[in-house]
Write a protein that binds this DNA or RNA. Sequence first.
RNA 1: GUGGCCAUAGCUCAAUCGGCAGAGCAUCGGAUUGUGGCUCCGAAGGUCGCGGGUUCGAACCCCGCUGGCCACCCCA
Length: 425
Amino acid sequence: MPPYRAPRGTRDLLPAERPAWRALADIARSLSDAYGYREIETPLFEQVDVFERGVGAVTDIIEKELFRIAPRTEDAEVWALRPEGTAGIVRAYVQHGMQTWPQPVRLMLLGPMFRYDRPQAGRYRQFWQWDIEAIGDAGPAIDAEIIELGLRFYREAGLEDVEVHLNSIGDPGCRPAYIEALGAFYAKRLDELPPHERERLATNPLRLLDSKDPALVRINVDAPVITEHLCDACADHFAEVKDHLDALGVEHRPETGLVRGLDYYTRTAFEYYRRGREGQQQALGGGGRYDGLVELLGGKHTPGIGFALGLDRVILTQQDAGVEVPSVRPPIAVVVGADPGGTAERLRVATDLRAEGLPVRADLAIRKLGRQLEAAAREGSRFAIILGDELSEGNVQLRDLEAASQKVVAIDDLPALLLRKSQGS
RNA sequence: GUGGCCAUAGCUCAAUCGGCAGAGCAUCGGAUUGUGGCUCCGAAGGUCGCGGGUUCGAACCCCGCUGGCCACCCCA
C-alpha cells in the first residue's frame, strides 16, 4: 500500500474522467455568458467571520463542518476554507463597491468548496460547485430567470428529468410569527416527538418540517404551512415568481417542507432533484433569495438571489442515468520510426507539426516499429507517420491506422494534409 | 458527531477446516532484425490497509486504528 493517500473525503480526478468535468465547466461557462453572468474568482479561504456572519453561526456548516486553518501566531487572523460560494462573493461585492455598478450584478463562480463532513457517496470534503448570483434585484422575475438557468444546465448536461422544488420561507418580518406558531404546534404534541427531534425543536424548529422520522412525518401533515403565514409582500412575491415560471413553461413542484440549511435565505427557496430521487442526499443543487446578506457583511441593504449546483453529483447522476459524456481524445497522429533509436527525428517532426497547431504525439520510447504502431493504434490515433529511409528524400509514410493503408507523402505536405483530415474530410 | 458492512497486485476478484498468496485485465519484453489493436510465450508487479493479540502456524480468529461504502445528521 502506498505511504500517502489523498486526504479523507478528497480524490484525484484522473485523466479518464477529466473530459466529462471539462464538458460541465464548458456548459456552465457558455450558459453564464449567454445569460450575462460574469465569472468571478474569490479566494479559497476567507476570514472565519465572513462565513460565520454570512452562513450563520448556528448552522451545521459552521458548527461542525468548517475547515478552520490553524493560526500561525496568536494575533493572526483566523481563516477557514470556504464551505460555499455566496458569502465570499457577497464579501467581494461589498469590498469592490459593486453597488455602484449597474444593478443587478450578475456573477458566476466555478470552483471547489470544503466541508469537514463525513464522506459518503456524492458527499466529499472537497467538492465542486457552480455558483450563480444576482445581487441588487428584489423583483420576482430574476428569481425565475435563475431557477430556469439551473434547469437549463441540467438539460444540457443530459439530465432531462431534473425538476425544481419550490417554497417561500418568508422574511424576517413574517417568519418569526410562523416559527412561533410552529413551535406552539409541536409543543402541544411534545409527547409524540422522538427525543432527538425534541432537542432540535429548541434550536431550529423549521428543521422538523423535512424530517424523515415516521412519527414526525405523521405529525407534519397537520403542521402549519409557511406559505399560509407569509406577509402580503412575501406572498405577492412568491405568487409572482410562480407566475413568471409558468410564463416560461417551467414546471415547479411546491414543497412546503423545503427549508434551506443556511441562515441567510429569505423568501424564495428551491432545490433541484431528479424525478424519483428525492432523498436528502440526492439534491443536485439548490438556492434561494438572501435579501439580508449584503447588509450582514457590511454593505447597504441589498437584495440577492442565487444557486449552487454540485458538479460532483451531476457527474454521478450522469453515470447513473447512462448519459454519454466526452472521453479522452487521442492525438490525430503519432510519429513513429523504423529506427528504434531515432527519437531525435521523431521528436523534431512532431514538434514541427504541433507548431502548425496539430495534436501529434511522438513515440519517444526506444522500441521497434511494431510496438510503436501497436501503441498508436491502441491509443486510438487515426494516423501513424512512419519515418524511414524515405526521410532522406524528404518523404514519410503516412499510414491510416483505421483503413490499414498507407502512402508516401512529402513531409512538407503533412500539415495541410492532416489539417484537412482533422476537420473531418 | 452516531450506527452498520467492508478492505488481498495499478484495476476487478479468487484462495476448501487456520497449513507454501493466485487468475483475468492493464504494464513491459519476445515470437529470424520497415508495419498495429487479434493470437502465442515470458517478465515485472504483494508489509494480504496499519498496529497489537491468540496459535506450533493467521489473508482467514480477537482488539484497536486508518480508509471506503451505506443508513442517520446535514448538505451540494
